[in-house]
Amino acid sequence: MLKERIREEAHRLHEETIHTRRHLHAHPELSFSEENTAAYVASRLDAIGLAYEKMANTGLVALLHGKKGPSDKVVALRADMDALPILELNDVVYKSTVPGVMHACGHDGHTASLLGTAAILKSLEHEFAGTVKFIFQPGEECTPGGASIMIREGVLQNPAPQNILGQHVMPELETGRIGFRAGRYMASADEIYITVEGKGGHGAMPHTTIDPVLITSHMIVALQQIVSRNANPTVPSVLSFGKVIANGAHNVIPDKVTIDGTFRTMDETWRFEAHRRIKEMARSIVESMGGRCEVNITVGYPVLINEEKLTARTRSLTEDYVGKENVVDLPIWMAAEDFASYSQLTDACFYRLGVRNEKKGITSGLHTATFDLDEKSLEIGSGLMAWLALNNL
């Protein structure tokens, strides 16, 4: 009976959830600049009848206490709110009105869906005991991540949740399908910035230079040994360099080269051992060839771990809500998510919500200028999270 009531409420609220998502999509804001987004979410929480507090400048945390009886059980539900610096190419009525900024990762859908979940649970507050903590988080797309700031400001305290759930759209999955992976699911992600200094000069007189371009070439190739020869083959690791600037000319050897890259892995101990090896190898190669080297590594998000028992229970409940045939296994993914910060401190489950609809032409991937989501998924997502929250209590 409770499950059917949740479904009915999710359906009744569906048009409102779509309206919320479209408003957010049309008015995107970048990481840690979500002032108007936060104000809009606050207005929706006011309309639902939930008290909230601000956190991490543009974040919000709301609490709903069930009225069925006393209970110290607490479950946290999280949605992120920030957009990306991408110029939207979709021709839709809710297209971004902010040039060069777009909800290309579905955070508008996450926020709208969680607001829908809050409204559903508010309507059922006399049917459960315990507390639901709704976390509307800024800055997921930008290091150090809004999760780490909210944690530092006490989001996992007063009251402390026994577990936390996160839902993220996935355009590879058809609408109606939900994806899970227990254990290590998403990688840590760290930013690498290297400067190689030499001595520039005329391209026709290389013997008078210390060529930082040649030195950098050797260094980039050699650094791949850290993955191919130092990493345990059973631990996924990625070392990639996506930006190399040698600002010389066809006949000018520059004085320095700058390199930007990323290191990702699924093991926290190996992660920091790899940092040490990257620094030592880069410096030794550059110095052995007569140059100077500076290596800076910005520590980003940790490994995202879905607690085994919680994930198994959440998956079973999801099968009950959407049908076993609509729940699928996910492979590990070397992308990163700052939900991982929560997963390092409390039992967590981060699952994927299918939003693909080929008949509607909704097939573009995350972080692309044509990303969109099938809005039917919002009804599924808001109802499912309500169902999971109540059963976790």
Rank of each mutant, 00 (worst) to 15 (best):
L214S: 14
Q162I: 09
L60V: 09
I6T: 06
E191Q: 12
S31M: 07
A83G: 05
N392L: 14
L77N: 00
T363F: 12
L393C: 11
S217N: 10
E319H: 08
M186H: 02
A336R: 00
H126F: 13
H250Y: 14
G116P: 01
L13S: 07
N391Y: 08
R352Y: 10
A118D: 07
I332E: 12
T97G: 06
Y94P: 00
Q162W: 12
N90M: 08
L87E: 15
W270N: 01
S341I: 11
L214Q: 14
P236N: 07
T175L: 00
I164S: 03
P236T: 06
L45I: 08
G383D: 01
H65A: 10
V169N: 06
T216P: 01
S148D: 02
L124Q: 11
Y193I: 09
E273F: 12
D91Y: 05
G354R: 02
A336H: 02
E174F: 13
H126M: 14
A118R: 00
V155D: 03
G154W: 06
D91W: 05
S123N: 15
P233F: 13
N57C: 11
C293K: 04
E191I: 04
T216W: 05
L330M: 15
A56K: 00
E197G: 10
I151Y: 09
G242F: 10
S237R: 14
L330W: 10
T17D: 04
M55T: 10
M281H: 13
G106N: 02
H168E: 06
S284Q: 12
R44M: 11
S316T: 15
L388C: 03
K309P: 01
I151E: 05
G154T: 00
E319K: 11
V244W: 09
M334Q: 04
G203H: 05
R177D: 06
G100M: 01
R277L: 15
G354T: 02
R181L: 12
A79S: 11
Q157F: 06
G66N: 11
M385G: 00
L239D: 02
G166M: 02
K54P: 12
L317G: 02
T314N: 10
N392G: 06
E34R: 11
A312G: 08
D374I: 05
E337G: 02
Y342F: 15
A10C: 11
L115Y: 03
P99K: 01
G145Q: 07
A38L: 07
S33N: 15
E125Q: 15
L24N: 03
P331C: 10
M385H: 09
L77V: 03
H218F: 15
E16R: 15
G179P: 01
G145L: 05
V74S: 01
S43W: 12
G248V: 09
V355A: 01
H19L: 11
Y301H: 03
A282N: 04
E35Q: 12
A38W: 08
G59L: 10
I380R: 01
V101E: 01
M1F: 12
G381P: 00
A160G: 07
I332F: 14
M289D: 08
P144V: 09
I48Q: 08
M219L: 14
H19M: 12
A340P: 02
E191T: 09
M1Y: 13
T175Q: 00
V299N: 03
N326A: 04
K279Y: 07
V61D: 04
I215A: 04
R292Q: 14
W270Y: 13
I6M: 11
H250D: 15
D374R: 04
